[in-house]
Simulated scan of single mutants.
Amino acid sequence: MPVRRVLTAAAVAGAAALAVAVPAGLAQASSGIFIYHNEYGRQVLVDQPSDQCTQIQAQSFAGPVLNRTDSLALVYLTPDCNGPVQIVYPGQITELRLPIAGSVMFVND
């Protein structure tokens, strides 16, 4: 088999594998809205990526949160999704037990 044909077949196989992998990654998004209250008022996050840390602005006050997404929301004390965390289930409205909220990560099963 000529080298060019082998390389073309390998490139096609690689492209097919990539095409299958990319949509699966894009499908992992949190659909819906997440509302949190802080010293600035009400803040809304819409259709956030899953398994990605998102900083939120609550530096001196963390008020109630409403998770109207289809994912678990992990609200962290720190801005880098580390440290103390509070789980907010889909459809849940709750007061945070954390003194401030620095970040949130949405997790799909």
Rank of each mutant, 00 (worst) to 15 (best):
P64I: 09
D70W: 07
G14T: 10
Q86H: 07
T78C: 01
R97D: 10
V65L: 15
L77Q: 12
F34V: 04
F61T: 06
R4C: 06
R42F: 04
G83L: 09
S103L: 03
Y89F: 08
A11W: 08
Q57F: 14
G14P: 01
G14H: 03
C81P: 01
I33H: 04
A58M: 06
V104E: 05
G102I: 05
S50I: 01
E39N: 09
P23F: 13
R68A: 15
V3L: 14
A27E: 13
N38V: 05
A19H: 00
G91R: 11
A17E: 00
D109M: 00
A62L: 10
L45K: 10
Y36C: 06
D80Q: 10
F61P: 02
G41L: 11
V75W: 04
V46C: 00
G91W: 10
A27S: 15
I33G: 00
N38R: 04
R42E: 15
I100Y: 04
A29K: 14
V12D: 00
T94H: 04
D51T: 06
A101H: 00
A19D: 03
G14F: 11
G14R: 04
L18A: 15
T69V: 07
G102T: 03
Q59T: 13
A17G: 15
L18E: 02
P49R: 10
V104Y: 03
T78K: 12
P64D: 12
Q59H: 11
Y40A: 14
T8C: 02
L96V: 08
G32L: 11
P64Y: 12
A58H: 05
R68P: 04
I93W: 05
A73W: 08
V20W: 15
G41S: 07
D51F: 15
S50T: 15
Y36G: 07
A11G: 00
Q28I: 08
A16Q: 00
S103T: 01
F106L: 05
L66D: 11
A16W: 01
V6P: 02
A58Q: 03
Y76D: 01
A13S: 11
D80C: 02
A21G: 00
P2M: 03
V12E: 02
V104H: 04
A11I: 09
V104F: 04
S50V: 14
F106Y: 05
G32M: 12
V12S: 02
G32C: 07
V44P: 01
G32H: 11
P64T: 13
R4F: 09
G91T: 09
Q86N: 06
V22W: 14
Y89L: 14
A9L: 13
M1P: 01
P64W: 10
V6S: 02
V44Q: 08
A58P: 01
V3H: 09
R42H: 03
P64L: 08
T8F: 12
Q59C: 03
A15C: 08
F106A: 05
L7A: 10
L7K: 08
L98G: 06
I33M: 05
C53N: 04
L26S: 03
T78W: 03
